[in-house]
């Protein structure tokens, strides 16, 4: 019988650099990748399965991911299909605040959210970068991402003209 079984058992994950993190089953199931793994373990396996190794996520990033999934463990998550049509009508202020981090961390978070298959986190973190680009001039974008301006004046003028012929589909 499952009388003594806690409703949200503990699960451990190990980062690529060998750090172990403890979280709960409900939280970790937000990751499509881990959900698939756990479903394959089958009956009675969760408590005895040991720590899940995540070779593509380092400890700094995993800590951030766990903070996010624990905060959202009770929220209904959109599927990756639903995310495609999603518009940014409302962003949870907690998420907005959570994503205040440097570009390096954001890139790692995007890569981890993709690997772990957490559509909502991937959507939020990629959107965060897009927001940094919106309403900026090309020069501002270059400085932000440290990109070299490799255009000649003639070349950029030609692309500007090509763009004038383009319309929204």
């Amino acid at each position: 019988m499952d009388i003594d079984r806690p409703s949200d058992p503990q699960v451990s994950v190990v980062s690529s650099d060998g750090t172990m993190f403890h979280t709960t089953l409900k939280s970790i199931l937000l990751s499509g990748t881990i959900k698939d793994m756990i479903e394959h373990i089958g009956e009675g396996g969760v408590e005895n399965m040991g720590a899940i190794p995540l070779q593509n996520v380092d400890s700094k990033t995993l800590e951030i991911v766990i903070k996010w999934i624990e905060h959202h463990k009770d929220n209904i998550q959109p599927t990756s299909e639903e995310i495609k049509d999603k518009t940014a009508d409302f962003i949870d202020p907690w998420d907005e605040n959570f994503l205040e981090m440097d570009l390096d961390k954001l890139y790692n978070l995007i890569t981890a959210a993709n690997y772990l298959n957490i559509p909502q986190l991937l959507w939020l973190s990629t959107r965060k970068i897009a927001m940094l680009i919106k309403n900026r001039t090309p020069q501002e974008i270059r400085s932000l991402f440290n990109i070299e301006d490799d255009w000649t004046p003639q070349e950029i003028e030609a692309v500007q003209k090509e763009n004038q012929w383009c319309e929204e589909k």
Binding site: A88, T126, A130, I133, I141, I147, D149, Q160, N163
Partner: peptide, 23 residues
């Protein structure tokens, strides 16, 4: 694929603006 995810958040006009960043 992930760079595409980022740029897919932009409107067509914003995306065209971004083409001017670099070759």
């Amino acid at each position: 694929e992930l760079s595409e995810f980022i740029l897919q958040h932009l409107t067509t006009r914003e995306l065209l603006n971004v083409t001017l960043v670099s070759k």
